[in-house]
Simulated scan of single mutants.
Amino acid sequence: MPPDPDRPDEPLPEDPEPAPDTPDPDGLELARRIARQVNAGTPAPQRPPRRKRRRPIEPMSSGARPDDRDPQPIGDVLRRMVEERGWRTDFDVHALIARWPELIGPSNAAHCRPEAYEDGVLTVRTSSTAWAVQMRSMAPAVVARLNEQLGSEVVRRILVKGPDAPSWSHGRLRVRGRGPRDTYG
Score class of each variant (00 low, 15 high):
W168P: 08
R181N: 10
R136K: 13
Q134S: 15
S107G: 13
V154C: 12
P163A: 13
R178Y: 07
P106D: 13
T126E: 06
D92H: 05
E102Q: 07
L30R: 10
V155P: 00
R181M: 10
R85L: 05
G179M: 01
R136M: 08
A139E: 02
P180W: 09
R51N: 08
Q72R: 15
P13S: 11
P49R: 11
L78K: 05
V143N: 04
A35N: 06
L146Y: 07
A139L: 08
H94C: 07
R113V: 15
L150M: 04
P16R: 15
T89I: 11
K161R: 15
D76H: 03
H111P: 04
V143C: 03
E17G: 12
V175P: 03
A98H: 12
W100K: 09
P166H: 00
K161W: 02
G86M: 00
A165Y: 03
A116N: 10
R145I: 03
A110M: 11
F91M: 12
P101H: 07
R156M: 03
R80Y: 07
V154Q: 00
D70T: 08
D67F: 06
D92F: 02
V133R: 13
A98G: 13
G171F: 06
I57C: 01
A132G: 11
P45G: 08
V82D: 05
P8A: 08
E83Q: 11
T123K: 05
T123H: 05
G86T: 03
D164Q: 15
P59C: 09
A144G: 07
Q134E: 14
A130V: 10
R136A: 07
L78R: 04
L96A: 11
E115V: 11
K161S: 07
V155R: 01
R113N: 10
P23F: 00
V175A: 14
T89E: 15
R88M: 12
V133A: 14
R178N: 13
Q149A: 14
S107R: 15
Q134N: 10
P16C: 09
V142R: 02
S61G: 12
D70W: 07
